[in-house]
Design a protein around this nucleic acid. Sequence first.
DNA 1: AATGCTTGACTTGTATGGTAGTAGGTTAGT
DNA 2: ACTAACCTACTACCATACAAGTCAAGCATT
Lengths: 230, 230
Amino acid sequence: MPNAKPAKVVAIGESVGPQVYRILRERIIQAELLPGERLSESDAAKSLSVSRQPVREAFIKLSEEGLVQVLPQRGTFVTKISVASVMDVRFVREAIEADIVRLVAEGHAPETIAELRRQLAEQRKVPHDDRAAFLRLDELFHHTLAAAAGKAYAWSVIESVKAQMDRVRFLSVDDLHIGRLIEQHERIVDGIAAGDKAAAEEAIRLHLREILTSLPEIARSRAELFDDTE
Amino acid sequence: MPNAKPAKVVAIGESVGPQVYRILRERIIQAELLPGERLSESDAAKSLSVSRQPVREAFIKLSEEGLVQVLPQRGTFVTKISVASVMDVRFVREAIEADIVRLVAEGHAPETIAELRRQLAEQRKVPHDDRAAFLRLDELFHHTLAAAAGKAYAWSVIESVKAQMDRVRFLSVDDLHIGRLIEQHERIVDGIAAGDKAAAEEAIRLHLREILTSLPEIARSRAELFDDTE
DNA sequence: AATGCTTGACTTGTATGGTAGTAGGTTAGT
DNA sequence: ACTAACCTACTACCATACAAGTCAAGCATT
C-alpha cells in the first residue's frame, strides 16, 4: 500500500505525541522525508489525523535530536545531513560503547558470548543485498552488548543520539561491505571471549570508525542531501 | 526578595517554553523543588504567569531528563534521586570525558594548558565553604576541556545528562573535599601538559569516580530524597 | 519600467476550552 | 459500625482559537 494515508494512524494505549515523533523520525531516517524538505505542523497534523499540539511536541523533540530545524514564524525543515554532525555523534558513540565493551569483556559471561556468537551466525546468513535486514541485526548486536554490560541507560543515550548516523547508513548505495562489518563483529566477540579488554575495545573502536571510510564518498555522491559546503 | 512571585517571569527574545524549562530545572537541581513534590501544569502556569501549554512542553523535556515523572491523569512529580540513575549518567560522562581528555592531551596546545592552569589558580582561591562558587569553576573546567578538544556537541550531551549528578553535588553537606578535587584537576592538567594520554585519561576517570565515595553517605543521610530502597 | 508599499496567506507560538481518567472523601446501604 | 458505591475535584491530554511574525505577490506610485 504505497503512501496510503490512513484516516487514523495513531493507536491506542500511548499518547499521541510520542507516536507522531516516532513516525516522523523513522521517515526522516529512511530518507522518506528528504533533507531540506519543509514540514508544517498543520500539514502533518492533517495527514496523521491529529491536532497540531502533539505534532508540535514531536517537532520539538526532533529538533533537539537535530533532525529538523524549527524557525519560528517561518517553518520547520528537515535538516540536511552534516558530515560534522555525523562525526560528532560518532565520537560520542565510540566513547560510550568502548567502555561498554570493556565491561562485557571483563565479565565474559558464557551465556553472553553464546548469544553473541548465535547472532554472528545469523548475520552471516543475511543476503548481501538485504541492507535493512543487516542493519536490524547490527542494531541488535550493539544493543545486546549494552544490555550484557547492564548499561541500559547508556544505550538509551546512544539511541537518542545516533539518528544522524543511521541516516547516512541508509544511504549507503553499495553492498555496505557486510562481510567486513561481520568480521569486525567477530573480532569484538573474540576479544570478549578471551577476556581481553584492550583487544575488544580496540575492535569496537575500529568498527565504529568504519563509517568514516564511506562517509566522504556518500557526501559527495549525494551532495544535495548534505549541508557541508565542500 | 525572598520568593517574590513576579507578575511576569519570562523575558522577551526567547520562547516561553524553554525558559520555563530552565527555571524549573534549576529549582529541581538546587533542591528548591524537593523530590516527591507534586507539580501541576496549571499551578506552575499560574505562578509563572504563562499558559499551560509552554509549561507542558517544559514538563515533557524535564521528564526526558528524568527530573520529573509525568503520570497521565494523575499528576507530575519531581523524581526522587536514584543512586542507580546517578551511577548510570556518571558512567556515560566518564566514557565521553575520558576520550575528550585523550584528545586534549594529544594536542597539548600551550594556550589550552595555560588557560587550564589559570583556572586551577582561581579554584585554589575559592573559600572552602563557598560550594556554589567551586561548582561553577568545576563546571567551567570540564567545559573548557571539551571545548579544547573541539567537542562542543559531546559537551552538550553531557550537559543534558548530568543533571542527576548535579542534584547530588548540591546536597554535599561537608566541605566537598575541595582540596582533593583540585588536586585531581591538577593531575589531569599535568597529564595533558606532558602529552601523556594514558595518565590524563586515568586522572579524569578517577576524578569522575569521586562522587561514588560520597554518594552512599549522602543517600543515607538524606534518605527521604532518594528512591532506592535500602 | 522600476521601485516601494500594501495585503493576504502562510508559519510557529501562546492561550483556552473540552474530555477521559484517577483519587479521595462522602454518603447510602447493610 | 463497617463496607461499598457514588460524587466531586482534581489531573494530563488533545483540540481549537487567537496572536504575532514572515514572505511573496501584486498593485500603486514615481
